[in-house]
């Protein structure tokens, strides 16, 4: 509907992925395996989240400390061994998670709020008013044509550091959030109760807040979850490329630094690789199941 872009994804961490609901692991399997499995699954997620957030406090060594010689295999003081600088791999991994999650969360919060506002306002303005589409949706469509990694790099060139990274990731998620919000709201706006509210002359604020938002909130949250998957990917990628003001222990950075010595100390590579993969998969599964649930609300 809006421009020449089909709603296909721009990145592997994509929007509105159809799944069919079979074999999607713990996420959508919750309905099949009963509430106990669901609790166990959410409990596991919460524990993981807590572990990542408290990681820096739990780490035995600081992110710059070098408790041993480089490339030492696992030993008493360093259960996963040391990396090329002699830093404790376990401590580094524990230090790296918190900035990853918090940066991603902040960026997604900003991007989703912007995107959802643009999408909702456009949908509410109706199909016949072109102005909001021209001013809001078209620029976002243009932005969506750039692969997110490149958009992040472009913005980091002009605006280096954490601020640039957060701005960039927020911007990368905005177009898709806007489209999801627009699509969800468009369905709701045509419902008879919303039309009845328009026909009795309710204000735009009330229309949006009382009639539309409660019905699309689920879809918006599910979308924010998918956006968060993308954000985790982008933060890790920025760390991996060494841009965006990454901290010493950034998981992406740990991976790139461990690559040359991978044959000497495979654990220094394996640990951050598994950490990123686990977080990405967990976030994706959670977003997937949230998406399934939000689609049931209006059915």
């Amino acid at each position: 509907m809006s421009g020449g872009i089909p709603t296909a994804p721009m990145s592997p961490t994509a929007p509105t992925a159809p799944t069919g609901g079979i074999g999607t692991g713990g996420g959508s399997g919750t309905s099949r395996t009963g509430p106990r499995a669901a609790y166990a699954w959410w409990g596991l997620c919460a524990t993981g989240l807590l572990l990542i957030l408290l990681g820096p406090e739990l780490a035995p060594h600081g992110p710059t400390a070098t408790p041993g010689p480089p490339y030492r295999p696992p030993a008493a003081g360093a259960p996963l061994g040391t990396d090329h600088l002699g830093r404790d791999v376990l401590s580094m991994v524990l230090h790296g998670g918190r900035p990853l999650l918090l940066t991603g969360l902040l960026a997604v919060g900003i991007g989703s709020v912007f995107g959802a506002s643009a999408g909702l306002l456009t949908a509410l303005a109706g199909a016949r008013s072109r102005l909001p589409r021209m001013l809001l949706m078209r620029p976002l469509d243009a932005l969506a044509a750039v692969p997110p990694v490149l958009l992040v790099l472009l913005i980091l060139t002009a605006l280096p550091g954490r601020v640039g990274l957060i701005t960039a990731i927020a911007l990368a998620g905005t177009p898709l959030s806007a489209r999801v919000a627009y699509a969800a709201a468009e369905q709701v706006v045509g419902r008879a109760h919303v039309e009845a509210a328009i026909a009795r002359g309710e204000s735009r604020c009330r229309l949006l807040g009382r009639e539309v938002l409660p019905l699309v909130a689920g879809a918006l949250l599910a979308d924010a979850g998918i956006r968060f998957t993308g954000a985790v990917y982008l933060v890790a990628a920025a760390g991996f490329l060494g841009v965006g003001g990454s901290s010493d222990a950034d998981w992406g950075r740990l991976i790139v630094e461990a690559l040359p010595g991978a044959s000497l100390q495979p654990l220094a590579l394996l640990a951050p690789v598994l950490a990123v993969a686990l977080v990405a998969v967990t976030v994706n599964l959670a977003a997937d199941s949230a998406g399934h649930r939000s689609r049931k609300v209006l059915a």
Partner: peptide
């Protein structure tokens, strides 16, 4: 399906 769901979210460099 599960393989695809797991792989879809993991960064390429990982």
């Amino acid at each position: 399906s599960t393989g695809a769901l797991l792989l879809v979210s993991v960064p390429e460099f990982v």
